[in-house]
Each structure stands twice: as C-alpha cells, then as structure tokens.
Nucleic acid binder design. Structure first.
Lengths: 215, 215
DNA sequence: GCAAAAGTGTTAATCATACACCCATGT
DNA sequence: ACATGGGTGTATGATTAACACTTTTGC
C-alpha cells in the first residue's frame, strides 16, 4: 500500500487553553498579549503547537507551563476548531481545552513569546485575536452547563472551602444569585462533599464549616 | 518573525464518523471492512484524511459520500482523539463526528478502499481496528445523554412518524423501556412535535397518528 | 370475535422553590 | 451591644413516575 500519511498535506495543530480563574469574588480568564505576528500586541488565549511526541493533555500542560508558569492543572477537552481562515498563516486547527483554577495558587510567569499576561474579569474581556472570543464563549457556556449537574471545579478551589465560597463560585459561573439554604441542601444531597469538621476562623463573623470534595 | 508553521512537524488529521442507523427496530452502526493496511480486513469506522481546503464538516460529508454513498447527513462533533499510538503509521489525530440516520433512506455504495460495508447491530459489534471501539462507545454515550433533554434525531427519522416509532428509537438508544403514556406526555410537552392529522394505516392494528418535528 | 397496537387520565412520590429567624464570632 | 456572615426547616408548587382499560383496525 502507499504510505497514505505522506500523500496528504497536513494541517498545523495547536492547543489553546481557556483558563478560568476564580479568586473567591469574580470569574476571570487568563489572556496573553502576543509579542509576534499574527495578532501582535493583541490579547489571545495561551496556546501553542502540538508536538508529535506528546498527547493533547501533555501539550496543554507544557504550553501553559512555558507561557504562563501554571503547572499541573485539571484540563478538559472543549472542542476542536477547524475554520479555514482562523489563522492567517495557513490551515491551523485548534484543539481547545479548558480549566478552572484558583489564581492565588499560581505565580504567573510571562513566557518568551508574550508581552504580558493578565487575568481579565470575565465581564470585561478585551477583543481577542484569532477566533479566540468564540472559543472562550463556548468554554464559559460549557462550564455553566456542566456545573448544573456536576459540581465540577471543586478540585480547583482550595482543598477545603466553605459553603459560601462554593456558592459564590456557582453564582459567578451561572451569572445569577442562588438561595443559600437550597444550595446547601443540593450540594449535600449530591453526596460529593463532606464536612471536614474544621472551621474557617479569624474572620469578623461566625466561623464557617469547611467542606471537602469526596474522591 | 519565523514562519512558525514550518518549524514544527505536523500530525496527520483524519475525520472518523460514527453513523448510527435506526430502522424502526434496532440501533445499528455503519462499519467498513478495510481493504488495506493497517487493519486490513478488519472493521473500522468510515473515516479519511482531512484535506487542507475543507472544513471538518465538509470532509466528513465527502468521506461518507465516497466511502459509503451516504450524502448530506446531519453531523455533530464528538471529540478529538490524539493518542500517540492510535495509528501504526505515525501520529494521526482523529476528529470524530457522529450522526443518526434512517438506513432505509440510503443506498450503501462500497467505496474503492473497502472490502465491505455493513450495518451492525449495536449490541453485536465486531472488534474494531484503531481505537474505534472507544470512539463508538463515546458516541453512543453522547447520544444517550443528549436524547434525554433534547429529542434529537427527529430529522433523522422519516419526516412523519408515530409516537411508538419515536419511543422505540429512544428506548433503543437509552437501552431501557419507557412508559407509553409518560413518553407521550413528555414529548408533547416539549413543544417540538405536532400531529399532522394523518395516520399510518394498513397495518394489522389500529392506525396510529402521525407526528412531525416543528421547525 | 380475536389479536395487535393505539390512545388516554389519575394518583402518589419526588424534587425544586420560596422564605426568616437565631447563632457565633470580632470589634 | 452591635455588626457580620453562618447555619438551619417547612410549606407549597412543579415535575416525574407508576399504573390499566378501552378503541380501532386486520384477519
């Protein structure tokens, strides 16, 4: 048989990462200001080319480490974008991944190829290069849809958290306020949380019970 | 700036299609027996290489037309598979799509590269080449999850159908039996169906009301 | 008239929602 | 003592699940 692999021209493949940050107050997204063309000096999602010897996950972890300093985060595949003109350099596919992290846990380190790296409030995104606005939009929709029936993103908070913190996260992602008592019931009924028996003290009010995710 | 696109070796990219068929009785899946290596004489999903000038959808439609004769079907992206050794020829990614069709509507035409083309009952799949068993599995799970809150796959039945036909489709995909009355209520409550006023006659029992999808 | 599949309504159980008061701590 | 956020239960409405008999046709 012919070596089919060499017959066809191959597209370039990138991995783009939508990293959501939640600091206890608001939902943000990590963007990188490109140093080089195309889209020099514009904001984009952190991304990079897939190497042949690495899986998508490995590539995503490498790219994030190199470009942002963030290591070892929990990623999930979002969608693969293949529009013909999404990249002015030629045919470039993007396998998009997304994650939700606590920005306070990471020290951002601006990589070689970037002017700047910044957490942007989700409500105030700048305009983005490539088709990254569309990717970010889809990621947010996926996150909101998913959190409704799977309290995802627990591992992405601190190991221990109060009910209010968890609720604030949900409210941020869903963009609506929730009833405290009903939220508490629903979370406990899910069976995915348990009380640690400890409390968060030192605030100017009654200490709050701490919960953790059941593995 | 350097031409980044030429710096990196590029993976090959294929599109693989999970085409579910529903003939009114059982759920099946369309498989192709490969003529050539790798996996010669083994069953696999119909798939092929992405060309640079076509979108994923276009590629999927072209591939299905060429390899199976099926044209113009409604496809949805499933997932992108990137395992390092999924293809013995080298690094080959697969952007998987899935669809649900009525097999009776299509005349299968075996393409050049195949020994045979056949609808397999979903319950009796043969072993599949590449990682296609995994892809098929994921597609079925996606279909089942989706049909729960979106009565998808209506366009994929005949334009008009009876409630029992629709119910049988759901039961097939979900793998469980449903209550007729509750199913009827749920479907009508969804607002996505309407009665056509016509009936399916000529069977050996009471004629059934025909419904159609509301656009 | 008998077999085969179609049509249909009520009840009970479950789940989701709305809602307000008291408690523990820091200052 | 007061301000702040934490913890909790109940009543109502909405949704979902269980369940069986009568009807229309072909043979």
């Amino acid at each position: 048989m012919p070596d089919e692999l060499s017959i066809y021209p191959r597209p370039s493949v990138t991995i783009d990462c939508v990293v959501f940050g939640y600091d206890g107050e608001q939902l943000s997204i990590l963007l990188l200001n490109r140093r080089d063309e195309p889209f020099a000096n514009q904001w984009t999602l952190p991304g990079g080319f897939l190497h042949l010897e690495e899986t998508f996950e490995e590539a995503a972890q490498r790219i994030l480490k190199d470009k942002t300093g963030i290591e070892n985060l929990f990623l999930e595949q979002l969608y693969t974008f293949g529009g013909l003109s999404r990249d002015p350099r030629g045919r470039v596919l993007s396998v998009a991944y997304y994650a939700l992290v606590n920005p306070a846990k990471y020290q951002l380190m601006v990589g070689q190829m970037a002017n700047e790296l910044r957490w942007f409030n989700w409500k105030q995104l700048p305009s983005l290069g490539f088709d990254h606005a569309q990717i970010a939009q889809l990621a947010q929709a996926r996150l909101a849809a998913k959190i409704q029936y799977q309290p995802i993103g627990f591992e992405l908070l601190n190991a221990q958290f109060t009910m209010s913190e968890l609720q604030a996260l949900h409210e941020c992602i869903l963009g609506e306020t929730l009833d405290r008592r009903n939220f508490h019931k629903r979370m406990m009924a899910s069976g995915l949380l348990r009380s640690t028996g400890e409390r968060r003290e030192g605030l100017k009010s009654r200490p709050a019970e701490l919960f953790e995710f059941i593995p």
